[in-house]
Simulated assay, not measured.
Amino acid sequence: MTEPQAREIIENYLEGYNLFDVAGMLSCLHPAVVFENVTDGSVTLRTNGKDAFEAQATKALALFMERNQSILAICLNADCARVDIKYFAISAIDWPNGLKAGAILQLTGQSVFTFRDGLIASIQDIS
């Protein structure tokens, strides 16, 4: 995959995420996609395959009133991209950890994407 192709598919995936467009996100993913969320060095969520990703992404729609991931920096090589991400969201629910509906979340993190057959094969969101 060329650098412009990798950048375009990542931007398309993030656009789908920001618009709450699960179908748009899925169109960027390989059928065997692996997704991991890593917080403080521990995997807190892992999905295997496009169907599992879709189920989780659909469930997550109800968690936020607004959400946005934007690219701060991107480092591409061969079949991998490391993307520094700025994240903003407004919670739609009260969370078990005490976060209340309407709370604003702002953080930076990193997403690591790998590619196969012109699609995203894995995503690791690290915060």
Results as ranks from 00 to 15, higher is better:
Ile120Met: 11
Thr114Ala: 10
Ile126Ser: 07
Thr44Ser: 05
His30Glu: 11
Ile104Met: 10
Thr2Trp: 05
Arg46His: 05
Ser70Asn: 12
Pro4Ala: 13
Val34Asp: 01
Leu14Pro: 00
Asp125Val: 05
Tyr17Pro: 01
Lys59Ala: 13
Phe64Cys: 07
Ile120Gln: 05
Leu72Ala: 11
Thr58Lys: 09
Asn68Lys: 13
Pro4Arg: 08
Ala92Gly: 13
Glu66Phe: 14
Glu66Gly: 05
Lys86Asp: 15
Ala101Thr: 05
Asp79His: 12
Gln106Gly: 03
Ala89Arg: 01
Leu99Tyr: 05
Gly102Phe: 06
Leu99His: 06
Leu14Gln: 00
Cys28Ala: 14
Gly102His: 06
Ile71Val: 15
Glu36Asp: 09
Phe88Lys: 04
Thr39Trp: 01
Tyr13Thr: 00
Arg67Phe: 04
Asp125Ser: 10
Met1Gly: 15
Glu36Tyr: 02
Ile120Glu: 04
Ser91His: 08
Cys75Gly: 12
Asn12Met: 09
Tyr87Ala: 05
Gly24Ser: 12
Gly98Phe: 04
Leu76Arg: 05
Ile90Gly: 02
Gly49Tyr: 11
Arg116Tyr: 08
Tyr13Val: 00
Ala92Gln: 07
Ala89Tyr: 00
Phe113Trp: 09
Gly118Met: 15
Val38Asn: 03
Leu61Gly: 06
Ile10Phe: 08
Lys86Ser: 14
Ser127Thr: 03
Ala73Asp: 15
Ile123Gly: 01
His30Tyr: 07
Pro96Ala: 06
Ser91Leu: 12
Asn37Gly: 00
Leu99Asp: 09
Ile123Asp: 02
Ser91Thr: 06
Ala81Thr: 09
Asp125Tyr: 03
Gln56Asp: 03
Ala60Ser: 15
Ala78Leu: 10
Asp84Gln: 13
Cys80Leu: 14
Cys28Phe: 03
Leu72Trp: 00
Thr44Met: 02
Ala103Phe: 02
Val43Trp: 01
Ala92Thr: 05
Asn18Ala: 09
Phe35Arg: 09
Gln106Phe: 03
Tyr17Gly: 00
Ile9Phe: 09
Ile85Ser: 04
Asp79Asn: 14
Ser127Asp: 02
Gly24Asp: 08
Phe115Cys: 09
Gly118Tyr: 13
Ser122Thr: 10
Gln56Phe: 08
Gly118Gln: 14
Leu107Gln: 06
Asp84Trp: 10
Asp40Ile: 02
Asp21Val: 07
His30Gly: 04
Lys100Glu: 13
Trp95Ile: 02
Ile104Asn: 07
Pro31Asp: 13
Leu61Ala: 07
Lys59Asp: 07
Phe64Lys: 00
Lys59Phe: 11
Phe113Arg: 03
Thr2Ala: 11
Ile93Trp: 01
Asp79Met: 10
Phe35Thr: 01
Ala52Phe: 01
Val43Leu: 04
Ala89Gly: 05
Ala23Leu: 08
Asn77Ser: 14
Gly98Tyr: 06
Leu26Arg: 09
Asp40Ala: 12
Arg116Asn: 14
Phe113Asn: 03
Pro31Glu: 12
Val22Asp: 02
Leu19Arg: 15
Ser111Asn: 13
Gly24Gln: 09
Asp94Ser: 06
Ile90Glu: 07
Ala81Met: 10
Gly109Arg: 03
Ile9Pro: 04
Gly98Thr: 06
Leu14Asn: 06
Glu11Ser: 10
Arg46Thr: 07
Arg7Val: 15
Ala23Glu: 15
Gly118Val: 14
Thr44Glu: 04
Ala6His: 06
